[in-house]
């Protein structure tokens, strides 16, 4: 039981190129089990690319990623999916699945039969639908529900996947203030249940409110890594975003108030 609760994701010196453009440069991180980790950085800093590497969709040429103690490049996608669940910013719905059809897809890595999900799968889905207040929408088409409900459906699908790590990209992009906070509360609750959350977002304030630690990426490199109140400084905002800002502190919480872009 020595390492129980210790490192769940270890990224060692990962460098990634799209064609010949270096997008990630020597990233080395250790993420603890149950940690709520925030990824911030300007556009093109490599946040999404890093998430895609951890989800096994992209394979870095240099460096190694370990998830749950295993080298990710030695695992099949279906095995990665049993450890990491991804929550994308948006869901595409040309084919208009129903909410329950969609959430059931989260069970894909586990279903043993060729066709139907088992009683157990079904129970898990029903519980999760209920806890996300989606059960009354189960037969509705994805195109017919609000964006807040869509975001919940996305989260529900990831939760149904019973992951140890959840990779969340822009969890609050299209949401109003209430839903933004709601989503973050869900994520926080999950992290309390020992599910590691890695969330990438532009919303520095939102992340610093909820995250245990924050990584700041710029041009594929880690600029800073630590607790929000330590990491987020006026100098750093100026350096990374090129914006003059004031940092306000209220107890444990840190707020960035941007003033004007630097010339």
């Amino acid at each position: 039981m020595l390492y129980e609760g210790a490192v769940i994701i270890k990224i060692e010196d990962v460098t990634f190129y799209y064609e010949s453009v270096k997008v990630l440069d020597g990233i080395t991180i250790e993420v603890q089990r149950g940690e709520f980790l925030g990824l911030i950085g300007p556009n093109g800093s490599g946040k999404t690319t890093l998430l895609r590497c951890i989800s096994g969709v992209l394979k870095p040429r240099v460096g190694v990623i370990y998830v749950d103690g295993q080298r990710i490049d030695k695992l099949k996608l279906i095995e990665v999916a049993q450890i990491c669940a991804s929550v994308p910013t948006e869901l595409s719905s040309e084919f208009n699945l129903t909410v329950s059809d969609f959430v059931f897809l989260g069970r894909y890595p586990y279903v043993k039969g060729i066709w139907w999900e088992s009683k157990e799968d079904e129970q898990i889905v029903e519980e999760v639908l209920k806890s996300f207040q989606l059960h009354h929408l189960a037969d509705r088409k994805l195109s017919e529900i609000s964006s807040g409900e869509k975001q919940r459906a996305l989260l529900a699908k990831a939760v149904v996947q019973k992951p140890k790590v959840m990779l969340v990209d822009e969890p609050s992009a299209h949401l109003d203030l209430k839903y933004k906070l709601e989503v973050m509360e869900y994520l926080k609750e999950l992290s309390r249940r020992k599910i590691t959350i890695i969330a990438a977002s532009h919303d520095v304030n939102l992340l610093s409110k909820y995250c245990d630690r924050i990584i700041i990426l710029n041009s594929g490199k880690i600029v800073s890594f630590g607790r929000p109140e330590e990491v987020i400084t006026e100098e750093l905002i100026r350096k990374v975003y090129g914006v003059e800002a004031t940092i306000m502190r209220n107890g444990n919480e840190t707020f960035v108030v941007p003033k004007r872009p630097l010339r």
Binding site: S55, I78, A81, Q82, S86, P88, L91, Y108
Partner: peptide, 9 residues
């Protein structure tokens, strides 16, 4: 991409 993340090759 999402299909891959759900575990499908």
């Amino acid at each position: 991409e999402q299909a891959m993340q759900s575990g499908l090759d």
